[in-house]
Amino acid sequence: MANFFSTRATKGLLNVGEIYCPKNGEFPSFKEAAGTAYLNNFVKNVPEDDFNSLSLVLAIFSFLPNFLLVWIINLCTNAQNSPSDGLLYSNLRQLNLGLRGLCYSIYYSEFTNPNYKGKKALDVLDYKLNRVTE
């Protein structure tokens, strides 16, 4: 079966994304700019087990108050520097990298919300890539 985020999981991702990439000066807010319609394309090759775990975590995140979510994200971030190789810290590190990968793939991409008319994050970086075919 194809990987498909539920509305709950998508809401959880938007909440997490806002912590990683908030509205800040020219930078758009993740919630406003993220093209969630494209989200399922980005996870179609993620192994089913990994996707299901991620999806479940995100669905749980959608119910959490912001302060708790910030605390969890900090825990994940700090796990990156922890010397422990135990199951908890290993999973937190993988979650940290998985969440950041997903959020940045949407945020630093051309796939923005069609209703969002402001500057994209890539424009804020002034990033342009010239690819010559002929």
């Binding site: 394309n41 980005f42 996870v43 179609k44 090759n45 993620v46 192994p47 990994d50 996707f51 796990a79 190789d85 810290y89 290993s90 999973n91 937190l92 590190r93 993988q94 940290n96 990298l97 990968g101 793939s105 949407i106 630093y108 991409s109 051309e110 796939f111």
Partner: peptide, 21 residues
């Protein structure tokens, strides 16, 4: 695009991790 490259071309849908993350 970079986002599609990573998601479509790579095993694991982008990146695979060591057991310790």
């Amino acid at each position: 695009t970079e986002a599609e490259t990573s998601a479509y071309l790579y095993w694991g849908g982008g990146i695979e991790f060591a057991k310790d993350g």
